[in-house]
């Protein structure tokens, strides 16, 4: 070696030229997008004023995406009511869907053939028909059943008679349709979670004397949650947007509300943007919640839990600072 012993050997990292080109292209595309989002177009209206006795006119311009109209309608009470109903439908349908799904998954894994076949048929039926069709079906259910009776099957003993038409309001129909449909999807997710837990875990629980249901609740389900949560988060976000289909059966949720407004003022695009922005905001909140939930249920599964975004940011900043410092240090040492 000819290099003097006190100078460290310089490391030259591989240069990724392809990546650089890609980054430049991406940057240009992003710039174009931002530019068009905030561009203005001629409005077709003129304003005139007198300048030194002469009348000067010029055409005014407006945002291409009508941001002023978007902003105006963003927090109107109609939109906020719609948003509340959207969140309400999402929460109810998901909670019911998860309960139905877990029950179906347990049935599906049962050693009783009738129970497992019933669960299979349920999933087959509700996954096999479009959710839009199911929404209409439950909305029109009173055509098939005028009254709904709660009593002993196959007898005339009845405890309660309910009028189907008054019971199945559009909102109820939406809740029933979305919950039953979600149950079918959740059952597959829950099943994959349950079978992901090692059999030794339930054997250990049973050897302690736990009953089957204790074993499921105390040992298997909490560990299955780790596998169940990520796809369930996906389902929640998907459900949030699926609720917009309920507007077709006269449920005035977020999309229904913005649609109603644009039907009156013909500002279709701005109101679609209002709805989209709200869906994006709620999705962002949900994704954040999912991250922390995943972290909670990963306890014990990972030796070190993944950092929270805040921790990661702090670590990155510290890393960059350290790099900067060492570089400067090297330069000073070599000069």
């Amino acid at each position: 070696m000819n290099a003097p012993e006190d100078t460290a050997v310089k490391v030259v990292p591989v240069r990724h030229y392809g990546q650089w080109v890609g980054a430049v292209v991406a940057l240009v595309l992003i710039a174009m997008l931002v530019n068009t989002l905030f561009s203005k177009i001629p409005s077709g209206q003129y304003v005139c004023h007198a300048v030194n006795g002469a009348r000067r006119c010029h055409q005014t311009s407006v945002w291409r995406f009508s941001w002023n109209i978007v902003f105006h309608y963003f927090t109107t009470s109609e939109v906020l009511h719609g948003l509340m109903l959207t969140i309400y439908l999402t929460v109810i349908a998901m909670v019911a869907g998860i309960v139905i799904g877990i029950a179906l998954a347990v049935m599906r894994l049962s050693s009783n053939r009738l129970l497992s076949m019933t669960a299979w048929c349920y999933t087959w039926f509700f996954r096999g028909t479009p959710v839009l069709v199911q929404l209409f079906f439950w909305d029109y259910i009173s055509i098939l059943y005028h009254t709904i009776t709660i009593g002993v099957p196959f007898t005339h003993i009845a405890f309660l008679h309910l009028n189907a038409a008054t019971l199945f309001t559009p909102v109820t129909a939406a809740i029933v349709a979305l919950s039953l449909n979600e149950g079918a999807y959740m059952s597959e997710i829950a099943r994959s979670g349950l079978i992901s837990v090692d059999e030794g875990q339930s054997e250990a629980a049973m050897s302690l004397g736990m009953t089957r249901s204790q074993t499921l609740r105390v040992v298997v389900l909490p560990q299955a949650m780790r596998v169940i949560i990520p796809p369930t988060g996906n389902e929640v976000i998907s459900m949030l947007k699926t609720t917009s289909l309920a507007s077709t059966i006269a449920v005035i949720e977020l999309f229904g509300a913005t649609n109603n407004i644009s039907a009156n003022n013909f500002e279709i695009m701005p109101l679609l943007i209002v709805a989209s922005l709200w869906y994006l905001i709620v999705t962002t909140v949900l994704s954040t919640g999912q991250f922390y939930l995943e972290r909670r249920f990963a306890r014990g599964a990972l030796r070190t839990p993944p950092p929270t975004p805040l921790q990661r940011l702090r670590r990155d900043v510290r890393g960059i600072l350290a790099k900067f410092r060492t570089r400067r240090g090297v330069r000073e040492a070599t000069s």
């Binding site: 090692d198 050897s207 302690l208 004397g209 736990m210 089957r212 040992v219 306890r299």
Partner: peptide, 24 residues
């Protein structure tokens, strides 16, 4: 199930693969 559980709770078992509850 209940009676079997009561019997099992009197008998301790240690497994080859430990089978500790991973989430606890």
């Amino acid at each position: 199930d209940k009676r079997i559980c009561a019997e099992r709770s009197q008998i301790g078992m240690v497994f080859q693969r430990f089978n500790l509850f991973q989430h606890l």
